[in-house]
């Protein structure tokens, strides 16, 4: 049985302090630019903010993981290299990377700092993971959210690095790092710009019958009845019609979020080293609630006590949730 770390999102310095104070073993964050996959307005850190945040985290015994997990387009590689150099100077504990060129640069220039392989690298087989371990010295892989627990257990036996899995938050449907849906509709790229369904392109249209539609760059992504709560227009959670599905259906996935709280003991038993909570775009109070609830649950399981799963289930109350691929391969 492993003794898993709790890896928590920090979209802002305030969220970072909140996560650390609520019991995060490590927090992950990024700079205010395209070098990370949550390049949203109002989020992320300046170098000065990161310096103070690293000091706060280290003083509380928590680690800081810097996400450099996008793909530099040719001609802009220096921005990613400079971000790595700044992170190294400020004493971050690991870099989370996806691009081979970025991984190679860090492995050569900052060999003393751990490399974690981002989910954006989409390494979903032992061979792919071993490629990054052998060439760049990757110490941990963040697994795509597409594997069952027995599959994770098997992968664990065949790779020389630690495993981190998502346990809670947004549930991406596409292979991460291989999705250009947002760029197709908006002109902003998830891989190159760190943008997914950007708020600047979102509109909600109210119709005569009281219904509402959510739109991204002018494309209707979903529609809602007069009494329904309108969701955010993420392309892979949208409702579309197909020739034999004229009524409209969720072609990829319903708007659900991932909640693996019931599976925590099984994941620990499978040898997972770190549990990741998604949500750098979330509020401080959300971070506080989720991190402290999972802190208690992980501590209970470590101590051999029954975890109070009800608290965790309640965190997504009113919202549909799923165990996704982790529970059964029928999800595929």
């Amino acid at each position: 049985m492993s003794n898993p770390e709790l890896i928590c999102p920090a979209g802002t310095p305030a969220a970072l302090r909140t996560a650390v104070d609520a019991g995060a073993d490590a927090v992950y964050c990024g700079f205010q630019d395209a070098t990370n996959a949550r390049n949203f307005p109002g989020l992320n850190f300046t170098p000065d903010e990161l310096r103070e945040s690293v000091a706060h985290a280290h003083a509380k015994g928590a680690k800081v993981l810097l996400a450099l997990n996008t793909y530099p387009p040719a001609g802009k590689v220096d921005l990613w290299r400079q971000a790595a150099d700044i992170g190294a100077r400020l004493g971050v504990d690991a870099f989370i990377v996806a691009d081979m060129g970025v991984a190679d640069y860090i492995a050569r220039s900052h060999p003393g700092i751990r490399l974690h392989l981002s989910v954006q690298a989409a390494a979903s087989s032992p061979e792919a993971i071993r490629y990054y371990c052998e060439h760049f010295g990757v110490k941990r892989v963040v697994l795509p959210r597409i594997l069952t627990i027995p599959e994770i257990r098997e992968i664990r036996k065949e790779i020389p690095c630690e495993i981190e899995t998502f346990i809670f938050g947004n549930h991406g449907l596409m292979v991460e790092g291989r999705c250009s849906l947002t760029n197709y509709l908006t002109g902003q790229s998830t891989n190159m710009d760190g943008v997914c369904s950007p708020a600047s392109d979102v509109e909600y249209a109210r119709h005569g019958d009281g219904s509402m539609s959510s739109q991204l760059a002018g494309f209707t992504i979903d529609c809602f009845g007069p009494g329904e709560k309108a969701g955010y227009p993420t392309i892979c959670k949208g409702r579309y019609t197909a020739p034999h599905r004229s009524e409209g259906y969720y072609a990829f996935e319903e708007p659900v979020s991932l909640n693996l709280s019931r599976l925590l003991p099984d994941l620990i038993d499978a040898g997972v080293h770190a549990f990741k909570i998604e949500g750098r775009q979330r509020s401080k109070s959300y971070v506080r609630g989720v991190v402290s609830a999972f802190r208690r649950a992980v501590d209970d399981i470590r101590a051999g006590r029954q975890a109070n799963i009800a608290d965790l289930v309640a965190l997504t109350e009113g919202q549909k949730q799923t165990q996704g691929a982790f529970e059964t391969k029928k999800w595929r």
């Binding site: 979903s124 795509p144 597409i146 449907l173 596409m174 292979v175 291989r178 999705c179 250009s180 849906l181 197709y184 892979c236 197909a242 034999h244 599905r245 259906y249 072609a251 990829f252 996935e253 691929a325 391969k329 029928k330 999800w331 595929r332």
Partner: peptide, 21 residues
């Protein structure tokens, strides 16, 4: 056509109420 995304899940099967297997 441009490839915009790949997934572990089959959306053809899903559209017809089936699973990938």
């Amino acid at each position: 056509r441009a490839s915009l995304a790949v997934s572990a899940r089959c959306y053809h099967a899903r559209a017809h109420g089936r699973t990938k297997d």
